[in-house]
């Protein structure tokens, strides 16, 4: 086996996987706290890409810095969505939230197509051509910074959940909704906060990806599927688990690229996904 190819694929897997990881963290957070699988996550990632692309066109600031702005946009949008739409269909089975989040996703994609058209856009940071080497393999500096940004964001989110009052409320609700309610927490607000943070991580993941992938209205879909895989693999609801699983997914994809040609590499990830969903020992059909 070609050693250079192996390093290149697996190293690339780790770099990409960290972006999956930060996206998966948001999905896992929303699931763990609100109990909803957010089918609009991919569309949120895509909007994050466009926010960064647009602001980069306008200000020429560093795209990773702009990803923070995207995260703030996501924060507001997530809050709004949960408060105005998803909260209203909670407690009527899974179909309500499923329909509402699928609908939101369709609207976001349509809006992106209206506003930005479906022509692919790209973002190139000032250091876009720089590379670095690890052993025989070469990677772009952009991907490294993307990974560092993903790690930093995840750590920050982790600290928000650990150290702040808001974080404590969120965790209280995720552990025991009824008890949290009895303690006087406003569950609707906590749900909205969780969705806000979840959307922020989606927007941030999108913002980071804008420098790595072509920006199109449908770009969120494959990223969403990857983050679904990671969130499920990480145990749905665990922040650290989701991030670590994101890296595993990236590695699996890298390994797939070694074994299979072209787009077939994603098969490995889907196979992993189906296996994990089916074989999770405790089952995942109910919380």
């Amino acid at each position: 086996m070609d050693w250079q190819l192996v390093t290149q694929s697996l190293g690339g897997g780790i770099l990409t996987g960290s972006v999956y990881g930060v996206a998966a963290v948001g999905l896992a957070l929303v699931f763990g706290v609100v109990g909803v699988v957010n089918f609009a996550h991919g569309a949120m990632i895509m909007l994050g890409m466009y926010v960064v692309w647009y602001l980069h066109q306008w200000t020429s600031l560093d795209p990773f810095l702009l990803s923070l702005v995207a995260a703030v946009v996501g924060l507001g949008l997530g809050w709004f969505i949960q408060y105005v739409l998803v909260n209203k269909v909670m407690g009527t089975g899974q179909e309500g939230p499923l329909l509402v989040t699928v609908g939101i996703s369709l609207i976001f994609v349509a809006v992106a197509e209206f506003v930005f058209s479906s022509n692919p856009r790209s973002v190139k940071p000032s250091y876009g051509d720089a590379t670095f080497s690890v052993g025989p393999a070469q990677f772009s500096v952009t991907r490294l910074i993307a990974m560092l940004a993903a790690v930093a964001f995840t750590l920050a989110l982790h600290n928000v959940l650990r150290k702040t009052d808001l974080g404590r409320s969120i965790r209280a609700v995720s552990q025991n909704r009824t008890a949290a309610q009895l303690m006087g927490l406003n569950v609707a607000t906590v749900y909205a906060a969780a969705m806000a943070l979840g959307a922020a991580s989606a927007f941030f993941a999108g913002g980071v990806s804008a420098s790595l992938l072509p920006v199109t209205p449908n770009a969120g879909l494959s990223l969403m599927l990857m983050s679904f895989v990671a969130a499920v693999l990480g145990g749905l609801g665990s922040i650290r688990g989701a991030f670590a699983a994101g890296i595993i997914v990236g590695l699996a994809e890298g390994a797939g690229a070694l074994l299979l040609e072209g787009t077939l590499k994603t098969l490995v990830v889907f196979a992993l996904f189906v296996l994990v969903l089916l074989l999770r020992p405790e089952g995942v059909f109910k919380r």
């Binding site: 909803v36 699988v37 089918f39 089975g93 899974q94 179909e95 939230p97 499923l98 599927l225 679904f228 499920v232 040609e261 072209g262 787009t263 077939l264 994603t266 098969l267 889907f270 196979a271 996904f273 189906v274 969903l277 089916l278 074989l279 999770r280 089952g283 995942v284 059909f285 109910k286």
Partner: peptide, 30 residues
């Protein structure tokens, strides 16, 4: 059968079916 056997329902069922279709898409494209 697999989904029912492993008690995958609701939103997860939707997810798994989405993944099966995507697998077919990738395979047929190749």
């Amino acid at each position: 059968w697999l989904s029912v056997r492993f008690r995958v329902r609701g939103s997860y069922f939707a997810l798994v079916t989405l993944a099966w279709a995507e697998m077919l898409r990738v395979i047929v494209s190749n």
